[in-house]
Amino acid sequence: MDLPQLWFLLIAVLWLGYLVLEGFDFGVGMLMRPLSRNDTDRRLVINTIGPVWDGNEVWVLVAGGAMFAAFPEWYATMFSGFYLPLLLILIALIVRGVAFEFRGKIDDPVWRARWDWAITLGSWIPAVGWGLALANLVRGVELTPDHQMTSSVLDLLSPYALLGAATTATLFATHGAIFLALKTAGPMRERAGRAAAVLAVPTTLVAGTFAVWTQLSHSAHTWTWAAVGLAAAGLVAVIVTTRARREGWAFGASVLVIAAAVALLFGSLFPNVMPAINDPANSLTIANASSTSYTLTIMTWVAAFLTPLVIGYQAWTYWVFRKRLTAEVIPPHTGLPARADDASRR
């Protein structure tokens, strides 16, 4: 394996980390409203990811940064080409992140209701959008010989890409429901567990179809059938374990599905990073999109030292906040009253 190939693998790993971690963040945000009966429930849901969502989100920044550093042509073509989907994702991530932090700062139902919508939309849009982007990456786009993407926005909405969007949306919703069931106790655990079991079946249909379609139409390799097989096994395991309410196992199974999906998508891409559907000669490949071996060597050393450290302290964070939450442990609101005149109430 040469350095550019190593970095292709590392970028797949960074995306894997992002999709696994923020995948359940998105799912939790998507399900916050339907699974909650009152404000305390909503706070309970939000607080299951409260200490960790910010650290989870950094994975996408590092994945994007790594693409910039290791494959500037890929980064440039993809980010300028997928302009509008990325714009929507960015806006969603902005309002969602602010919503978590600001929602409780003012003790007022109207204020909270607005941020709840920001969390809901801010979770749905990226859950759909990342699937759309990744599916289009694998499907290929129209590229000029100098790697300018000429596909229009409508070209990005092919049936395959829409199925990819539906795949990430259902998969993240299921993943999030399982995470919620794993992180809560009492009625919320019950509801989330039931939701996970209900969501598992359509998720399996959608994701399974997408996986087979990917393999048949967009993968040139036989070995990616293994990823399809793993995904299928994972999906079946999700159905079985969510029905049995084995939350830990179910979480492991949904992580396996996401890992298999990333392996399938990046495996299908290989050795391209952005295939051109109009003319294969125009494709961006690992070889023609990469940085110099000097830059990649530096980056490899940095990543080799820092990535284990990051995984270590993030794992420790999950350990610190490992206790299940219930509605009873959610403290009263500490936000200031809605009207400024009451600010000096104490």
């Binding site: 960790v52 969502w53 950094v58 820092l306 993030q314």
Partner: peptide, 20 residues
């Protein structure tokens, strides 16, 4: 690209994880 990627890996991860 390298300093941007390293910023994420070396600094922003620290900031975002430990603020939580």
């Amino acid at each position: 690209g390298a300093p941007l990627a390293i910023e994420g890996l070396a600094a922003f991860f620290l900031e975002s994880t430990f603020i939580g």
